[in-house]
Design a binder for these strands. Structure first.
Length: 665
RNA sequence: GCGCCUGUAGCUCAGAUGGAUAGAGCUACGGACUUCUAAUCCGUGGGUCGGGGGUUCGAAUCCCUCCAGGCGCGCCA
């Protein structure tokens, strides 16, 4: 759990006010709170006296009774009534009128920065997400990663933390090697040794076929071919060395290929408003000698061992405790960083990279700009042709906290990385190396069948696999959702609106699940546009905007003043105020525990509260008068101001979720 | 074998720190639009919170155990 410093927000504030008084009265350290099951009981409740009964050897009703008496004599500022219900609950009624006056004033005054805190100080947060192998198209599982990381980054930025987002490009890994090998040697015209002219190879990619899609199929095909053709395996080995070594036409070709595919990945996620500050290339980590420095550091600080015997003979390993029996027989648990042939493992590179993120490593990348992104910010990239860190306008790395967004299957290697940091003596950095682990996206049996997967079990979900080419490609999915959104609309949509709804629907779908919940992707489920969806959120915001627009068109003057707040709010007014008041503390909690689903849940609650208020501002009454038609000027002003306050907070919530806040649909 | 995660309504999922009658959405059925935007709202139906023990005044939540599913434990990345 991260510790987030921040100002106390409304619900927290009220709770703390109450807790303060109660702690004094009862002489306890902590006061637990909960919400009563029925509204008439109150808005806030505590069962503290029930747990106190035993140790104090007194009936809970008696303890609570005395506490209530004292509370009545000394009411916390935002509480208007305290009651007692058996078997010993203390219930509090909030002074909604007062809370509403303060809350709306504050929001209208602060506008779009309402609820924003500037508590982050100088603590820099470094977030790595996406990091898709640049050898094929992205699929929906990758999107979950991107959208999670992007949302977390938005939350930290909002809270005032200097935040840096990077996308790691593994351009020297076997996946890229496979596709390069396939391009060069699978189909004629074959690559001729000694030449640096790759024109004919590039021409294999049809012009009307996106490169990432082409490589998706090619990569899957290559997996089959390489199985039965030993000469391809040899070629692959050769190409691996050339790419790792650099300084060879094939290496340049691989880089070019990866660059083009990265570009298509960036275009894909940009459709969901996902952007980065920096692209970090693995080839640059290798070429800048990050590992050599790390190797020395590891040997110097300890935590690394050269094996002279046993199964890992000839390797440099990090000891992780003995031998274990696994399903594949008896294995050493120690993590190999340098193989007996001298080459280094992925985890070794990861350790070096993690050290760089914290600014521990003396080495640095060279940097240049990649280009401007759709949101107007420049994207940087590491590059051997770039400038040194001190020569550019930005400073990358040197973070105080590092969040790596990687799926749950990589928990073990991530632990190895932070454990290595610990063993090297970087205790604080190990503590602040956070693996944001989330479960994968699988395909429902139906979805798998639609995609043409063979042998689907009707009960079991199917893992997506780049190797076999089964998966829902991100761009396909985006297009499908867009098509559905346009179809479902009762009027023609502007392109920008259709795109915004599409993005909101997809982001919401991928964010609403808890981190440990596997998403079993099903087309019907994922293409929903009613109920608990991103579309619902957009409608609530657009509806509020329309009301305000209409009020303006009719020249309705609604000048906010605290005097317009009714003494007694209706149920739906009160629920909406309650939802609005929770905004800031929800954002804070999201940053603390990195559980973004809490934010989507809140967004839905907030939108629901508004929609209910809009449909039934006077729940008891048979007639519901549109706000702009209200005769009672004071009430009209109040309700329109509440709409405005909602619109501001909903807009902020949407932006935190990376969704455009539509004024009109 | 060891470790981690999951199991809640027909389906998809929420349910910090243990609290009062376990909630949404979808689906089904029945209602509400000469509109401040109905991708909405209202109503009805729907549950042995995987099973069994335990701790507690109180357990979906904590502990033990069993069952079912997923993942991890590579000189892969």
């Amino acid at each position: 759990m991260l510790v987030i410093r921040g100002e106390r927000e409304r619900p927290e504030m009220i709770r703390e006010e109450v807790a303060e008084v109660l702690k004094r009265i009862l002489g306890v350290e902590e006061i637990p709170f909960n919400v009563p099951p029925q509204r008439k009981m109150g808005d806030l409740s505590s069962a503290i006296c029930l747990s106190l009964a035993k140790e104090r050897k007194r009936p809970p009703m008696e303890i609570a009774g005395e506490a209530v008496e004292q509370l009545k004599a000394n009411l916390p500022p935002h509480i208007q009534e305290v009651t007692l219900t058996p078997p010993g609950y203390i219930n509090f009624k909030v002074n909604w009128s007062r809370l509403t006056r303060e809350l709306i004033s504050e929001i209208l005054e602060q506008g779009e920065s309402a609820g924003k805190s500037f508590s982050g100080g100088n603590e820099k947060v470094f977030i790595e997400h996406t990091s898709v192998n640049p050898n094929k198209a992205m699929h929906i599982g990758h999107l979950r990663n991107s959208v999670l990381g992007d949302t977390i980054a938005r939350v930290f930025r909002w809270l005032g933390y200097p935040t840096e987002v990077c996308n790691y490009i593994d351009d020297t890994g076997v996946q890229v090697v496979d596709v390069v090998t396939a391009l060069l040697y699978l189909n004629p015209p074959l690559f001729e040794e000694g030449t640096s002219d790759f024109k004919s190879v590039w021409q294999k990619i049809p012009e009307d076929h996106p490169i990432d899609y082409f490589c998706w199929d090619l990569y899957a095909r290559f997996q089959n071919e390489v199985e039965k053709d030993p000469s391809l395996r040899e070629k692959r080995e050769e190409i691996l060395h050339r790419i790792e070594g650099g300084n060879h036409p094939v290496s340049d070709f691989a880089k070019e290929l990866a660059t083009r595919i990265v570009q298509s990945h960036l275009e894909t996620v940009a459709r969901l408003s996902v952007f980065y500050d920096l692209l970090n290339w693995e080839s640059d980590i290798i070429r800048q000698g990050f590992w050599e420095t790390t190797f020395e550091l590891l040997k110097e600080k300890g935590g690394l061992r050269f094996e002279t015997e046993g199964p890992n003979e000839g390797c440099w390993v990090v000891p992780f405790g003995g031998i274990a029996e696994t399903s594949n027989g008896v294995r050493s648990l120690d993590k190999i960083l340098v193989r007996s042939n001298g080459s280094i493992t992925y985890t070794a590179k990861d350790i070096a990279y993690q050290l760089w993120k914290f600014g521990i490593l003396e080495k640095d990348f060279l940097y240049r700009t990649w280009g401007k992104q759709d949101h107007g910010e420049v994207l940087w990239t590491t590059s051997m042709e770039g400038k040194e860190g001190h020569q550019i306008s930005r400073r990358f790395g040197k973070a105080d906290r590092v969040i790596n967004v990687i799926d749950v299957r990589q928990t073990y290697p991530q632990q190895v990385v932070s454990e290595c940091l610990r063993q090297m003596g970087f205790e604080k950095e190990a503590e602040r190396s956070i693996h944001l682990a989330y479960e994968v996206v699988n395909l429902s049996p139906q979805a798998a069948r639609i995609l043409g997967a063979e042998e689907t079990d009707e009960k079991r979900s199917v893992a997506m696999s780049g190797r076999s080419g089964t998966g829902v490609k991100a761009k396909d999915f985006i297009e499908m959702v867009k098509k559905k959104v346009v179809e479902k609309a009762d009027h023609p949509l502007e392109q920008s609106v259709a795109n915004a709804l599409t993005s909101a629907a997809i982001r919401y779908y991928l964010l609403k699940f808890t981190l440990e919940s596997q998403i079993v992707f099903d087309f019907d489920e994922a293409l929903k546009t009613t109920g608990d969806t991103g579309v619902y959120l957009e409608y609530a915001h657009a509806r509020a905007s329309s009301i305000l627009r209409k009020a303006e068109e009719r020249k309705i003057d609604f000048q906010w003043g605290k005097g317009v707040v009714p003494v007694q709010l209706t149920d739906t007014e009160r629920d909406l105020v309650g939802a609005i008041s929770e905004f800031a503390s929800v954002v804070m909690k999201t940053a603390e525990n990195l559980r973004v689903s809490r934010l989507t849940e809140y967004a839905f609650d907030l939108a629901t509260a508004f929609t209910n208020f809009y449909e039934h501002p006077d729940p008891g009454s048979k007639v519901q008068t549109p706000f702009i038609h209200l005769r009672d000027e004071s009430l009209r002003t109040f309700r329109l101001s509440l709409v405005r306050a909602f619109q501001i907070v909903m807009g902020n919530t949407l932006r935190l979720l990376g969704m455009p806040a539509l004024e009109k649909i």
